[in-house]
């Protein structure tokens, strides 16, 4: 059972990160590590994919890597 101090993988949390700066999928996964959220790897991938589909962030390549970002 997650405690209040654990990291929550929510749409709002992802939105806040992507407004702050462009991030790769790996950057995002680093923010929501399984040991901090208590989710499995598969759950993390599935939930993050659903959130990104809903948010439909802008995409751009930085150093040949695809980054997502949002504007307010």
């Amino acid at each position: 059972t997650p405690s209040a101090s654990d990291v929550l993988l929510t749409e709002d949390a992802v939105r806040r990160y992507l407004i702050r700066k462009p991030m790769t999928t790996k950057d995002l996964l680093k923010k929501f590590q399984t040991k901090r959220t208590g989710l499995s790897s598969e759950q993390t991938v599935n939930v993050l994919a659903q959130i990104l589909k809903r948010l439909n962030p802008e995409r751009k390549n930085i150093n040949d890597k695809m980054h997502f970002y949002l504007t307010e």
Binding site: T25, K30, S41, V45, N46, A49, K53
Partner: peptide, 20 residues
Amino acid sequence: SSSEADEMAAALEAELNDFM
């Protein structure tokens, strides 16, 4: 581990590729 992170990133990108 970083290889697990790589696998998760690849899985996530594969999920999103259908959508993008």
